[in-house]
Amino acid sequence: MSLYYITIGKNEYTVNLDSNSILIDGKPVSADLQTVNKLGLHVLKRGKKAIELYLNSMDAENLEVLVEGQRLLARVETPQRRIYRQETKQSNSEIVAPMPGILANVFVKVGFDVEEGQTLAVLESMKMQMQLRSAVAGKVKSIFFTPGDQIEKGEEIICLE
């Protein structure tokens, strides 16, 4: 028997699979998932209904789903995975790139005191400029990039102490 927790938005579903039955939130259903092609296209057969879905594993637990004109992410976890999952919360003292782009400007140097809400740097992407502000007051501990650098989404640009 296999147990899966599926999280879509705020809702969680429990799906129980064994060799001859499928239970969703404890209720038995009949369903069959057919692979249409190697690109990720599938059809979920549910009685007379056939639902087309594109399914793509983004990593160990996140599944990208395209269905009926929507794109959404579903988290798929086994009970073991759920136990080991650790919520990592981003620290307020890190200025992280919210989008990929090029660092256009940095207004502070290591050792500067900064106020809450102060603009520390400008990131430019697709001709759009975005000001990166400090969420807290503090002192600049380190700066990891210089203007002109290409930065990936999620990379830490400035660290405060």
Partner: peptide
Amino acid sequence: QNLELEKEIALAAALFAQQQ
């Protein structure tokens, strides 16, 4: 918020994980 559809997605996701 189409809860019926979400349920179908959840089913598909679990079956997909199992197949993988």
